[in-house]
Amino acid sequence: MKITKEEVEYVAHLARLDFREEEKVKFTSQLNDILMYMDKLNEADTAGIEPMSHAIALQNAFREDTVKDSLSHELSLSNAPEARGPFFRVPKVIE
């Protein structure tokens, strides 16, 4: 076993997901299959190989800090599930 049901529960919490019991069982088994497949990578010799994060050599894209048009409050809040005044509204955070 690469991953147990308890680890699935822990990773789900990190990812802010909830699963029903039967989903946990199914996911544990599917994630195990997938992670077993990933073991294939251990066959590759990567000694001294620099990890690659982008395909193209990137340079920092600097620019002058100038004022440009931005979205209005109204437009920024237009998709909000709940808004009040110029704010996004969420359920209570602290007791």
């Binding site: 997901l17 994630l31 997938i34 990578l41 590759a44 190989i49 620099e50």
Partner: peptide, 30 residues
């Protein structure tokens, strides 16, 4: 989508980062 979020979160989680994400990024260079 949930399955991939789970794989990704697991691969980046502490203790597994080197074995999965770093290793994959090295093989990507190859």
């Amino acid at each position: 989508v949930k399955r991939r979020i789970m794989i990704g979160t697991y691969a980046l989680s502490s203790g597994y980062y080197d074995a999965y994400y770093k290793k994959a990024s090295q093989v990507r260079a190859l």
